[in-house]
Amino acid sequence: MKQQLKIAVCIKQVPDTNQIKWTQNNTIDRTNMDSIINLCDEYALEMAFNIKEAYKDKQTQISVFSMGPYKACEILKYALALGCDNAYLITDKVFLGSDSYITSKILAQAIKYVFQDEFDLVICGQFASDGDTAQTGVGIAVNLNIPVVTYISSLIEVNDDSIVVQQNFEDSFNIVKLPLKSLMCVINNNCKLRNPNVLGYMLSQRKDIKILTANDLGFERNQVGLQGSPTYVYNAYRYKEDNNREKKIYSGLSSNESSKIILKEVQKLFDYYED
């Protein structure tokens, strides 16, 4: 029985969309917007710790990877404070503009670079709240040539060479067994997440975040970023307002007056149903 278990967790820093303020032009006001760790990725970290705790007699090492600007060190530090053992920031200006196909390639290459072939599990969040393409995790698995299970909500049990999880699909819950050496995409299951404690923060001060660049990973400029990506944004535009709607806006009315306006619409419907 193998005594060591090596887990890689991929996380992403995203704008905190819970705190969106809108400008007068209906664009997002970014001036005071915080960056946070993507929610699904918090569950990916939680899953890694759950697996570590379930494998009592194995020595588990959790390494966390993030691709992004230097600012993303914030979430890597947070992951270290939670108890991750190693942290890697994958950053290079030539990576800018990479689509999810290329992002998967870069992250997979970083995992290969750090572990060679010596890892057991890769855990990703199912999707990121900013892009929501839900492609990167699956893409990493294809690039590493390992099996992938998506939409994982919880860990059921661990065996010596496999893991059993619950997968949530639209019309079924699937209990799925996956081998060690595979990739898991984890969803938000509303379970309680752990918080870093003071000791965790203190220990994390001693851990370095290692930087990986395009050069380290053996990428040429034209293989990554906008140039290397198979897809590109041809055009981006504001979602046009809906001209079929009346857009009668009431402001400054008392709540009582406003509520009467709403009730009138409800009443109209009931009259219509009764006819």
Binding site: Y250, N256, S259
Partner: peptide, 25 residues
């Protein structure tokens, strides 16, 4: 929030606190 984009996509918009309206309704 009078700048919320939903006001460009509705028939009737009420600029008021959601809870105040829920209570009143």
């Amino acid at each position: 929030d009078p700048n919320a984009p939903i006001f460009n996509h509705c028939d009737i918009g009420i600029v008021d606190d959601a809870f105040a309206i829920i209570k009143e309704l």
